[in-house]
Amino acid sequence: MYAQMVKSTGHAVRALEDMEPQERAFQERINAGEKIEPKDWMPEGYRKTLVRQISQHAHSEIVGQLPEGNWITRAPTLERKAILLAKVQDEAGHGLYLYCAAETLGVSRDELYEQLHSGKAKYSSIFNYPTLNWADIGAVGWLVDGAAIMNQVPLQRTSFGPYSRAMIRICKEESFHQRQGYDIMMKMAFGSEAQKRMAQDALNRFWWPSLMMFGPSDKDSIHSAQSMAWKIKLNTNDELRQKFVDQTVPQAEYLGLTIPDENVKWNEERGHYDYTDPDWNEFFEVIKGNGPCNKERMDARVKAWEDGAWFREGLMAHAEKANTAEAAE
């Protein structure tokens, strides 16, 4: 998912009877499945946690343009190029909806950018991995958009109205992306030997980072417990990861590709596939900034922002002039 390890208040969830009346009424609305809107009263912790989560998601969409954008100029056909362009455009659009959702909570897009550029805010670990061959574009759609959907489909029911509505729009497009990604994988996996090799190589590299997208097990996390009580998180990380593995394994089998984990096998008793947990040390290193592309990704975003300062300022100056001229009339 695009939001990982979002910190909440850091306190245990309080029982309804321990809450002040206002907070209790708020929690009861959530329990009843009502949507919270920006003008409604909300606990400060709810607001802050949501800003963290939504902005992390927004940043992920924006940074996510880079690994895929990496192949636009090299896409192998005009149609593939057009599909990829449309996808990257969608991702930027997702970023835009999400920044708007965050803005309803009283934080501007510029402030959020500032947090991203300074390294204070995080984005999904997955986008710190490189796209090295064309099948990676297929694998990203299939696995990365696939994992994102696992998390975002339940979030359509999240308690915060603007976030929920953004998710509804986004989910439609993400499932489109996933199908297109899988379509590339089919062409590659059923193609020439060289293409098959690319497809397997892509799966080998993206399998583990995709599992990491869900974040480490959080069944004992107080942050997750609070977020779940507030319905800004609806499933545990392990639940979603299992769902993802269950969905993906048969798809890989259909492609004739091997999941790079020899422990993947159907467990009749559990009714799920068993699998090996990813290397969480690697995950924490990536989060800390030591992934293969952290520096490139951040440098690219900061450069885009700084190089574009004159453009933004020029437009502002023009708008001011136009306003002054209008006022003078």
């Binding site: 343009q65 455009q89 835009l96």
Partner: peptide, 21 residues
């Protein structure tokens, strides 16, 4: 399309991807 992800504002990222498309 070389601008994808590198434009001065998000709206321009979107507009340029659209233009290139």
């Amino acid at each position: 399309s070389e601008w994808c992800g590198h434009a001065p504002v998000l709206e321009e990222d979107i507009a340029l991807a659209n233009m290139s498309l």
